[in-house]
């Protein structure tokens, strides 16, 4: 898991709970490197799960809610630092379709060893997209938050449902059904 995710997760926690809380939580959590993360490093995903769980314990919010909020936070971060990817996109669905083909291609140029999730997009019609998210990591809600934030970013609205019946071939896959409201 890329260091940037850890750094940003801690930033979010700092903005929500304050630095001292974050430091306390990190000290208590059993983390390999004592919670020192750099954006250019790579760290095991279990660490992230541990941190989320630790904040959940501290705040009483469920890990799923935290993940989803973190999705919104990361979308903001992406938009700020990598605005180029958003340029020329007409709407959120087009943006989501471009994740595998454009964004992940660029990521691999910088980090050839990055383990990226897959996003297989199928456009049902102008306002509907099926997005199959495949990753061995238990970050479905994080992903959910990212999609929500993406729709918001383009000033759109609609429903984002997880289809529990669709698990095609791989238990690590999740089908998101995104339907935009007509505008």
């Amino acid at each position: 898991m890329k260091g940037v995710v850890f750094v940003e997760l801690l930033s979010m926690a700092e903005s929500a709970f304050g630095e001292d809380v974050v430091d306390n939580v990190l000290d208590k959590a059993d983390l390999e490197n004592g919670g020192a993360y750099t954006t250019v490093g790579n760290y095991p995903c279990e660490e992230l799960v541990k941190i989320v769980q630790a904040f959940s314990d501290h705040s009483g919010l469920s890990p799923e809610v935290l993940q989803r909020k973190f999705g919104h936070w990361m979308m903001e971060f992406f938009a700020q630092h990598y605005g180029g990817f958003f340029e020329g996109k007409e709407g959120s669905l087009e943006m989501l379709e471009a994740v595998d083909g454009e964004i992940h291609v660029e990521v691999r140029k910088l980090y050839p060893d990055a383990e990226l999730p897959r996003f297989d997009a199928r456009r049902v019609n102008d306002t509907e997209l099926e997005l199959l998210y495949s990753s061995p990591r238990p970050l479905v809600e994080f992903c959910h938050g990212l999609i929500e934030a993406c729709v918001d970013r383009f000033g759109e609205s609609g429903s984002i449902d997880i289809d529990p019946t669709v698990k095609p071939g791989n238990k690590n896959s999740t089908m998101f059904n995104i339907k935009l409201n007509e505008q």
Partner: peptide, 20 residues
């Protein structure tokens, strides 16, 4: 900044430099 926060940041920086 607390000592532990400073130590954590320092560790992160060294890690970054090593990686670089």
């Amino acid at each position: 900044v607390s000592r532990r926060r400073f130590e954590r940041e320092k560790a992160a920086r060294q890690e970054a430099e090593r990686l670089l």
